[in-house]
Design a binder for these strands. Structure first.
Length: 272
DNA sequence: AAGCCAACCTGGACGC
DNA sequence: TGCGTCCAGGTTGGCT
């Protein structure tokens, strides 16, 4: 679910509602997430005012006066704003009671997590410390790709590497490769500098459009912003999830390839 | 050293 | 209806 456009959409719905409010109470669910959360650290947040909500790659960073609360949504994680006293949906792992709203962290698959950090720990956090440039920074992304231009890795996998570009996941990697007419299984080393720049430009365009559409809500409806609204980029997907359907450029049926255990969707005629 | 892949989980879609 | 199989938006750690 949550790649950069989805996480940023969540951030944009959260910040105006929560910024400036004091966190009154925190309650943790019984299930284990990817990392255990220390009760003491959570309680330290209580009484602190939330200054702002930032995003780094796919992570959300809640900046309080004297601490930071970090969320990663994994595959199925969701942040949900509800009025106080609302019933808790299944798989609720955290309840953050602000002055006027409750923020719920819900995650059926439990690949996501939240953590309390000291402000000084943010920069070196394992998820944040080595992040590549944002996909909107075309020159920097081009440089990051060019820096690895002798790599034998498949280009789709390079795009998923958060150290190369931040915030790209499988959906937008596939879409950007279609837009740039590059086969997802092509080794990075076999793509010229000029083509790498086209890829960076295509990625920026795809991410900008997806963000404008409020992200991608697939048929299963799992992605919602913090107020429960879906995104509409699924209507604009060219290849992801469209196996067997006609290419929007040449009508050839879209193909699916398993690369490293994950599906890559592409047009076998347009993408080489 | 770089690159591949199984593992972490649950739930939904599909076929029989 | 029910059961088994496959698939999923991410990331890591261990292996080759």
């Amino acid at each position: 679910m949550p790649e950069l456009p989805e996480v940023e959409t969540v951030r944009r719905t959260l910040e105006p509602v929560l910024a400036g409010q004091v966190l009154l109470a925190v309650k943790r669910g019984p299930a284990r997430l990817r990392f255990p959360v220390e009760e003491q650290a959570l309680q330290r947040l209580c009484g602190q005012r939330l200054l702002r909500v930032e995003r780094r790659g796919k992570a959300l960073v809640f900046v309080f006066c004297d601490a930071v609360l970090l969320f990663h949504l994994g595959m199925s994680g969701r942040l949900w704003l509800r009025p106080p006293g609302s019933p808790l949906p299944p798989h609720t792992h955290g309840v953050f009671a602000f002055e006027r709203w409750q923020l719920l962290f819900v995650d059926p698959r439990r690949f996501g997590f939240f953590q309390v950090l000291e402000p000084s720990e943010v920069a070196s956090h394992f998820l944040l410390g080595k992040l590549g440039p944002e996909p909107f920074a075309v020159r920097q992304v081009t440089a990051a790709l060019a820096q690895r231009s002798s790599s034998s890795r498949r280009v789709r996998d390079v795009l998923l590497d958060q150290r190369v570009v931040a915030g790209v996941g499988n959906i937008y990697a596939c879409e950007a490769l279609f837009a740039a007419k590059i086969h997802p299984g092509r080794p990075l080393a076999r793509i010229g500098r000029r083509k790498l720049q086209e890829l960076a430009e295509a990625l920026a365009r795809v991410m900008t459009s997806a963000l404008a559409a409020g992200g991608t809500t697939l048929r299963d409806g799992s992605f919602r912003d913090a107020l429960g609204e879906p995104g509409f980029f699924a209507l604009e997907l060219a290849v992801y999830g469209r196996e067997g359907e006609p290419c929007r450029r040449c009508s050839t049926p879209i193909a699916r390839l398993r690369l490293g255990g994950r599906s890559a969707y592409f047009c076998p005629r347009c993408q080489r």
